[in-house]
Design a protein around this nucleic acid. Structure first.
Length: 900
RNA sequence: GGGCGAUUAGCUCAGUGGUUAGAGCGCUCGCUUCACACGCGAGAGGUCCAAGGUUCAAGUCCUUGAUCGCCCACCA
């Protein structure tokens, strides 16, 4: 019966078909009752055509590779729902888009903003963001309507309350990173430092009651309006006499004290620093120590506030210009120096952060960090690759308290209420009806929401039904392995570890694999919100998701980032096409075979195709069948080992070369005639082996190219009820099945055929003409190997005959190619390009001479002989002998030319 | 300022101290061979950034330097 293999490989159609099917089959859904070990990781929904997550593209590729591989090994593979994070990033994207147009989302009004978000959701549907949106559907994102999912929401509240009760969450007034565009506080991690070319303005502050003055240096002159002191180092001799005196703050005409504080760096600027406690972290600390007032001279959107007097209402940068101009006019601007410094910008909108004193909710991190450091030190959690450990420790040991409250329109509302009467703050699981202190009922809930990473940190257990003791929680917590991009180590991984240890007493996962991230040629991250780099959706559509996945896998060497190029994807698109065509060849010939009265595929495939061993028709298994199964066993062992060690690029490389190089280029070409052989028994045996090898190759390929392999696998007869290749077994490593002798013999035959083709190509002989050749074998074993595969050699090397003769051959009447095992001679009448051949020989001899000299010297070195391992010495001796053999042959041929 | 990584073929990159350093693309030559021109066959192409060191042996380990990149960082 004819198979349905279209001529053209069209990935999109295949992808759509199988993505739908997998979603229906729930292939990667966790099943708490399923047997087998649990392998659980961050997983995307299975119904993705573009199996990529935009922010961390490799998540979906590599995880999926491991997931499918482990699933095929019988692991019970877990797939977890996303957190609110994905839903909330929708808002972020819209905020960013609006900001790019100079619009603050708040200025739109809540209703219009909400409308924009839904519009964007609709617009971006069908693209990569669709997955995120699907995840986000479960969370209702406006503050009023926020429900997360009831389970996750409950966990977040529970954690907040418990941390508060333990004294690990507090409400405090400190300097925070304030984003004037988003109009919210953000955490340290959400700020991005950028080197900016700025100025260091030197300003003269007159000292009250003297003619003296002190010069301070600042990069933000507009903040001087909020100065409440000038500080110098306690032991700075230049300023000793000024400590305790007062200066008249220019422009504002406010008297402020000169204080001494150890944080002042005598070397920087003038050694005297203006102190603005409300707008600088250092100054804030100085202010606390010296009891200085805080004057916040700005509003939420970084315009100057009423406290800035005449500058009120101006934008901060406009105010900067005016302040500088006014100081200059007053003759108080001493100098302006160029100064590059790091400016904090908002991770989500790029606006320059204003450090600003503000009352926020914080988490005390030290007590949470200590057990998390210990867990990694003890090896309870393994961070891989392990140079990431250093980063983790560094960050954890210098951790600062975490500002978790946000003044945004979406997020999980903070479960805290303030009593309008006695100002008591009540943190509770349920909204209280009356104040716990004064009993009155004028309670208002804190308007702030929690930052998304707070709830994300709970993900390993909040998704399992925690705080209830559920079967899911018992089975799946802690999990085995977390895979993610390294750029999320602090945001998420570290916080999951801390929260996991705090609330469950166990590590959330035992291993963390941090894969590389994709950058564009400028070194920028591929980013969903920034629109940088190659658009993965476009690439998927252009080349197919399988090609894209394979490309990413092939480039996923640990430790370095990936720069994706179209060329590379294109080459794996070609590979996908090659697999497709190999399948077409197989099925087309099968049709012919069946039509001619051969067994049907069903009969052929009734043989155990999973035996991964060649099928024997008679007493002797053909060499090439032994060979392909040996190559398969080798590749399988290598792929399994590579995946076990997260070496995706190696696995991809091995499977690529096995399929293209061994299976297509040699095996298929070799057995072509057998497939239509008159000898029915022989033909059937070949078919069985071909199918067996092909089917194994598909399973080997499946984690890398899931759609294509699924499609082709279903064309092969499968056992009743077989639903997906992903549910079949992954080929098992059986290194003992490697047939070294078969590999050596085939390698020899390949070299003979290559030599013959080389002579033809180099001498520009008629590509169609069948030529007679002579072989001078070095050993009887070579001759018998050749004799047994003579027909194949003649066919694949396009020779009319191959006879055995004793060398040397006459180089002047034809061309010789040789190696340690044989000399191959093809005689012909046409003129030989002697200079070319001589040059070739000389070059080859030159290389051999150097190699022989170097090996000879090494082997004569007694130290080498006594210190190097025996196998190295023996191996080198053998190689040296071979090189000398080759050298002799080449020298003889060169001599023949020179005798002319 | 601190940390991490990179530097290998024209390009993008692999390379686990050991015997002639690999891949893909590109390039050259030849093939419309009935699975595949997204292909087949045959080739060319590399002082492995530099200088020292360790070792019997270094692309691989160590030191220093150069260049590029990333992350972290409250010096105004």
């Amino acid at each position: 019966m004819p198979r349905e293999i279209p001529k053209a490989y069209e990935p999109q159609q295949i992808e759509q078909k199988w993505a739908k099917s997998w979603a229906e089959e729930k292939l990667f859904r966790a099943d708490v009752n399923a047997p087998g070990p649990v392998f659980s990781i961050v997983i995307p929904p299975p119904n993705v055509t573009g199996s990529l997550h935009i922010g961390h593209m490799l998540d979906h590729t590599e995880i999926d590779i491991l997931t499918r591989w482990r699933r095929m090994q019988g692991y019970n593979t877990l797939y977890l729902p996303g957190t609110d994070h994905a839903g909330i990033s929708t808002q972020r994207v819209v905020v960013r888009q609006l900001a790019a147009k100079g619009i603050n989302y708040r200025d739109l009004g809540r209703e219009a903003f909400e409308k924009k978000v839904w519009e964007w959701k609709a617009e971006s549907g069908g693209t990569i963001t669709k997955q995120m949106l699907q995840l986000g559907e479960s969370c209702d994102w406006t503050r009023e309507k926020f429900t997360l999912s009831p389970e996750l929401s409950r966990a977040v509240t529970e954690v907040f309350v418990r941390l508060y009760e333990d004294g690990l969450i507090y409400r405090g007034h400190y300097i925070v990173n304030w984003c004037p565009q988003c109009r919210t506080a953000i955490s340290d991690l959400e700020t991005v430092h950028e080197e900016r070319q700025g100025h260091l303005w030197h300003i003269r502050y007159p000292i009250v009651g003297t003619n003296e003055s002190v010069v301070v240096a600042t990069t933000r002159p507009e903040t001087m309006l909020g100065d409440t002191a000038v500080a110098v180092h306690p032991s700075d001799e230049r300023y000793q006499h000024l400590i305790g005196k007062r200066v008249m703050l220019p422009l504002v005409n406010r008297e402020i004290p000169i204080v001494d504080d150890f944080v002042v760096d005598r070397e920087f600027g003038t050694g005297a620093v203006k102190v603005t406690p409300a707008h600088d972290p250092n100054d804030f600390e100085i202010g606390r120590r010296h009891n200085l007032p805080e004057i916040d001279v700005m509003t939420d959107d970084a315009k100057m506030s009423a406290a800035a007097g005449p500058y009120a209402g101006l934008d901060r940068f406009e105010a900067r210009k005016r302040v500088v101009a006014d100081l200059e006019a007053a003759g108080l601007l001493v100098k302006i120096a160029d100064h590059t410094h790091a400016v904090g910008t908002c991770d989500r909108c790029g606006t320059i952060i204003e450090p600003r004193a503000s009352t926020q909710w914080f988490v005390k991190m030290k007590p949470l960090a200590e057990p998390a450091i210990a867990a990694v030190e003890r090896g309870d959690i393994e961070l891989l690759p392990d140079n990431r450990r250093t980063e983790y420790f560094e960050w954890m040991r210098n951790i600062r308290d975490w500002c978790i409250s946000r003044q945004l329109w979406w997020g999980h509302r903070i479960p805290a209420w303030t009593c309008g009467d006695c100002k008591e703050i009540i943190v509770a699981r349920q909204a209280p009806t009356a104040c716990t202190k004064c009993g009155l009922t004028h309670l208002t809930q804190d308007p702030d929401v929690l930052e998304t990473w707070f709830s994300s940190a709970l993900w390993p257990f909040s998704t399992m039904g925690w705080p209830d003791d559920t079967p899911d929680y018992r089975k799946y917590y802690p999990t085995t392995l977390l895979i993610t991009a390294y750029d999320i180590l602090f945001f998420w991984v570290a916080r999951m570890i801390m929260m996991g240890l705090k609330f469950t007493g166990q590590v959330p996962f035992k291993q963390v694999w941090m894969h590389s991230i994709v950058r564009n040629a400028d070194g920028q991250k591929m980013s969903k919100s920034k629109g940088t780099g190659i658009d993965p959706v476009e690439m998927n559509e252009k080349f197919g998701t399988d090609a894209m996945r394979f490309t990413l896998a092939s480039m996923a060497a640990p430790g370095t980032d990936i720069i994706l190029t179209e060329d590379r994807i294109l080459s794996y698109r070609a590979f996908a096409n090659k697999i497709w065509n190999a399948a077409r060849f197989v099925f087309m010939n099968l049709d012919k075979y069946e039509t001619a009265g051969g067994e049907t595929l069903e009969v052929l495939a009734a043989a155990d195709t999973r035996a991964a061993a060649p099928y024997a028709a008679g007493a002797e298994i053909p060499l090439i069948d032994r060979w392909i199964f040996s190559r398969l066993a080798r590749a399988t062992a290598q792929v399994n080992d590579a995946l076990e060690h997260f070496r995706f690029h190696e696995a991809a490389h091995v499977v690529y070369h096995f399929f293209w190089g061994d299976f297509c280029d040699w095996y298929i070409e070799w057995v072509k005639p057998e497939l239509v052989s008159e000898d029915r028994v022989k033909a059937a045996a070949t078919w069985k082996n071909l199918f067996s090898a092909f089917e194994s190759a598909l399973r080997l390929l499946h984690p890398f190219m899931p759609f294509l392999t699924e499609e082709l696998w279903h064309q092969l007869p499968q056992r009743d009820g077989a639903r997906s290749i992903a549910l079949d077994k992954f080929p098992e490593a059986h290194a003992e099945r490697i047939d070294t002798l078969a590999e050596e013999q085939v390698a020899l035959l390949q070299e003979i055929m290559t030599a013959a083709r080389n002579i033809r190509a180099e001498m520009k002989l008629d590509p169609k003409a069948k030529l007679p050749a002579q072989l001078g074998p070095a050993a009887p074993a070579v001759q018998s190997t050749v004799e047994r595969s003579l027909d194949t050699i003649l066919r694949l090397a396009n020779l009319s005959s191959l006879s055995f003769s004793k060398p040397p051959f006459d180089s002047t009447k034809g061309v010789v190619r040789s190696n340690k095992d044989f000399e191959l001679f093809i005689a012909f009448d046409a003129a030989i390009d002697i200079p070319a051949e001589v040059a070739r020989l000389r070059k080859e001899l030159d290389r051999l001479t150097k190699d022989i000299a170097s090996k000879d010297a090494r082997l004569k070195d007694e130290t080498f002989r006594s210190k190097a391992p025996e196998n190295i010495v023996k191996g080198m001796e053998a190689t040296l002998a071979e090189r000398r053999t080759e050298f002799g042959k080449l020298e003889e041929r060169l001599a023949q030319f020179e005798r002319l």
